[in-house]
Design a protein around this nucleic acid. Structure first.
Lengths: 342, 342
DNA sequence: CTGTTAGCGCTTTCAA
DNA sequence: TTGAAAGCGCTAACAG
C-alpha cells in the first residue's frame, strides 16, 4: 500500500512554510508573496498533494457536493431520457464549477423526509436538487428542508420560497395543435395515459385550450390508453373518432400508435399525422421520423446547478423560478412535406 | 436559520453520558449497558441527531461513499439504458448497504488519471466503479489506482489484479444465430456499426463463430452502417445479399432496419426475421415487438456494488471477476409463431 | 507577509 | 461498563 496520505503538513515541511501559508496558497485567501507561492506550488506538485475534502469541508463549513434526489414516484422520472439527461447535465455543470454530485434514489424502505434529513444534516451536501417530485412530496419538502439550498425540477411548489425549474407542457401541446391546424387538420386527437400526474394533466389541458384557441373546441377527441400495452382494444376508440392527426402523450405512446396504425393498414403521415412528446432517441430512427416536442432536460439540469450553487454560496439570494417554454421539432411523421405541396 | 447542528455533545449532554458512550451506542462498538443504551437512543431520537459524515469518515478512515466514474468514451455507455440501469442499480444496491454514490462524468477538460487521483485521494470515496472504459482507459486505471478498491464494468482488463464484471457478447449473438438456424434460416445477415470498440468486435466475432458452428460459414453476410443515419444507401448492400433474417448490432439499428424494410415493402417477420440487442424500452412498443438480447445491466450494477463493498471493507480479498452469459428474449419480430406452424 | 493555534465533529485508545 | 483525551486534516482568526 504505497497509497499513504500526503497532508498539508508534508507540503508545508517540504516548502519550508507553515500549514496556514499552504492553505492560503491553495485557497487564494490571505496574502502570500509570489516567491512563497511558487515554493508551495512546487511542493504541492512534487508530492501530488490532493486536499482531504472531508477535513476541508468539516472545518470550513462549506461543501461542494450537491445531492440529486430522485423520488421515482412520478412516471416521467422513469423515462430513460429524463434520468440520463438530468443526471448527466447536472454532473457536467457541477463539474464545471468544481462541485461533486451525489445521486440518491429514494429507497422503498426510506421515507422522503428521512432521506432529506439525512442529506441536509450529514454535512456532506451543500445543496439539493429534486427532480420530478409529486405534489405530496413537494409538501414534505416544504416542511423538511428548513432553508437548505434546494432546487425542484419538473414541479411547481405552492410555497414560493422554494426554487424551481419546470417546463410549460401546455405550450408544447399548443405548438403541436397549432402546427397541425396550420397544415389544415381539424380532427386532431389526443392520446393520454390513464394517470393524473401534473404533467399529464397539463398536457391534456394544453390540448383542450389549444383546440379551443383554434376554433376546434368541438373537434376534441381524447383517448385514454393504459400505461402497459396489452392489445389493440384501447386503440379502436381512437380510430372510431376518425381523426386525421394524432398527438400522443409521449414518444413511446406515439410508437405504439404507429404500430397500431400500420396493423390497420394506415400509413403515417399520408393517412394520419402523428406527433410525440419528449424527443426520445428512437424517434429519429423511426420511419417516418417522429415529430415531437423535446423537453430541454439538459438545460434544466445545467440551470438548476448554476442557480443552486449561487444559493449554496449565498443563502440570502431570493428563490429562483423558471419555466421553459416548449417548441416543436418538425420531422416527417406530421406530414409537413406532403401537406405543404398541396 | 433554525438549522443549527446537533452534535454528539448535545446528545451526550442530554443523555448524561460521555460522547464516547454515544459513539459506542451508535456504532455498536464497545460494551454499553442496556439502560444507558436506551437513554442514549432516546436522546438521539429526541434531538433528531444525524451524525456528521465528514467527521466520522475523517476520524475513522472509512468511507461509505462509492464513486461511479463514467468515462463516456465507449459508445455503449451513451445509450440511455446503460447509463440509467447501471446508475440506478448501483444507487439502489448501495443504498441497501447504507452507502452513498457520487457520480462523475469525465469532463472534457480533465484527464482520466487526474480524475481518478482526485477520487482516490480526496478521502471522500472508499471505492470506485468504472463502467465501460476503453482499453486505453483501462491501462490508465491500472497505473493510477494503486490498490484503491475498484470495479470495472463492461470491460476486461489485462491486469488480473483488477476486479471486473462484463457480459459475454458472443454468447448473445450465438443465441440469436442458434434460434434463427433452428427456425430454418440459413441466410442470416449481421448489421454492425462502423466502429471497433470491444463490444462491437465481440458481437461480430460471435456472429462469425456461431454461423460456422451451425455450418453456415459460407452464408456469412456482414453490412456496415454508419452510426448516424443519413439515407437508405447503406442498407441496400444488406438487401442485395438476400438474407431471410437480420441480426442487428443493437435495438436502435434494428429499428432503423425495420423502417427501411417497411419502405421496401417488406414485412417483419413474414418477409424478414429481425433481432436486436440491448433490450431498449421501445422494443416492446414496436410492431411487431422486437426480439432482442438483453444485457443484465441491473444485475451487473448490483453485483458490482456488492463485490466492491466487500473489498472496501476488506482490502485483502482477491479481485472479483465475472462474465454474465447472455440469453435471448423472444418476441414476434423473429417470426417464432409463424415458422413454428410450418 | 507569515506562523501559531484553536478547533470542526467524530472515533478510539487507554484508564478508571 | 464508562469517561477523558488525543487527534483525523484542514481553515481561519489572531499575532507578529
Amino acid at each position: 500500500m504505497t497509497r499513504l496520505k500526503v497532508t498539508l503538513h508534508d507540503v508545508a515541511n517540504l516548502a519550508q512554510v507553515s500549514t496556514a501559508t499552504v492553505s492560503f496558497v491553495l485557497n487564494g485567501t490571505g496574502k502570500v508573496s509570489e516567491a512563497t507561492r511558487q515554493k508551495v506550488l512546487a511542493a504541492v506538485n512534487h508530492l501530488g498533494y490532493i486536499p482531504d475534502a472531508r477535513a476541508r469541508s468539516l472545518k470550513s463549513k462549506r461543501s461542494n457536493i450537491i445531492s440529486l434526489l430522485f423520488s421515482y414516484s412520478e412516471s416521467s422520472v422513469t423515462t430513460s431520457r429524463y434520468f440520463r439527461d438530468i443526471t448527466a447535465s447536472v454532473c457536467a455543470k457541477a463539474s464545471e464549477h468544481d462541485y461533486k454530485v451525489m445521486v440518491t434514489l429514494l429507497a422503498r424502505g426510506k421515507s422522503l423526509d428521512e432521506q432529506v434529513k439525512e442529506i441536509t444534516h450529514s454535512g456532506l451536501s451543500g445543496g439539493l436538487i429534486v427532480p420530478g417530485p409529486s405534489p405530496d412530496e413537494v409538501n414534505t419538502l416544504e416542511q423538511t428542508l428548513d432553508h437548505f439550498p434546494t432546487m425542484i425540477l419538473s414541479a411547481v411548489p405552492q410555497d414560493p420560497s422554494l426554487s424551481y425549474i419546470d417546463v410549460d407542457n401546455r405550450s408544447g401541446i399548443a405548438r403541436a395543435v397549432e402546427h397541425l391546424a396550420n397544415l389544415g387538420h381539424r380532427s386532431i386527437a389526443y392520446v393520454t395515459p390513464i394517470k393524473t400526474d401534473s404533467h399529464a394533466v397539463q398536457r391534456l389541458q394544453g390540448y383542450r385550450e389549444a383546440m379551443e384557441a383554434h376554433g376546434l373546441g368541438s373537434e376534441v377527441r381524447i383517448t385514454e390508453i393504459p400505461l402497459q400495452f396489452e392489445n389493440d382494444a384501447a386503440f379502436y376508440p381512437l380510430l372510431n373518432s376518425h381523426p386525421t392527426a394524432i398527438i400522443a402523450f409521449d414518444d413511446l405512446r406515439a410508437l405504439q400508435i404507429h404500430g397500431f396504425l400500420t396493423r390497420q393498414g394506415l400509413h403515417v403521415p399520408d393517412d394520419m399525422a402523428l406527433i410525440g412528446f419528449d424527443d426520445e432517441d428512437f424517434g429519429l430512427h423511426m420511419s417516418p421520423r417522429l415529430t415531437t416536442i423535446p423537453q430541454p432536460f439538459g438545460q434544466m439540469g445545467g440551470l438548476a446547478v448554476e442557480k443552486l450553487i449561487e444559493r449554496v454560496e449565498n443563502p440570502d439570494l431570493p428563490p429562483f423560478h423558471h419555466i421553459f417554454p416548449l417548441q416543436i421539432t418538425l420531422r416527417e411523421s406530421c406530414g409537413l412535406a406532403e401537406r405543404i405541396k398541396l
